[in-house]
Amino acid sequence: MAGSENDFVQVESPSSGVSVIVPTEDIDMSRSPVLRSAIKEELKPGLDRMVIDLSQVQYMDSSGLATLVEAMRLAKTSNVGLHLCAMTAKVRAIFEIARLDAFFSIKDTREDALSA
């Protein structure tokens, strides 16, 4: 496995007030708490926009969905724009099964998410 359970989330700051969260492995019940912690840590005062780049995620279960729903709620209360981007077809299908594709701002590319 490329990374341990604790280092599969990378965080980038392309500009002031912007965080890009990049999970680099599949997101299931064993990894969702790590993603949740990373998101909460970045949702701090001064942040305007958060992008979660899912391009490296081939699989996500409902614990991952729950983590992102919670992130969206926290972002809204903090006035942070949260965008998901670069979903693989299989991950997008999971959002559609859960009827959550309309709940999130989902962009095709990271560039789209950063400029939305």
Partner: peptide
């Protein structure tokens, strides 16, 4: 097909998660 296999895996994963959780 690939997509259905992924969904079946998801259904199994959800079932196992429910047992564990």
């Amino acid at each position: 097909g690939d997509m259905e296999c992924s969904k079946i895996s998801l259904a199994l994963d959800e079932a196992l998660c429910n047992v564990i959780r």
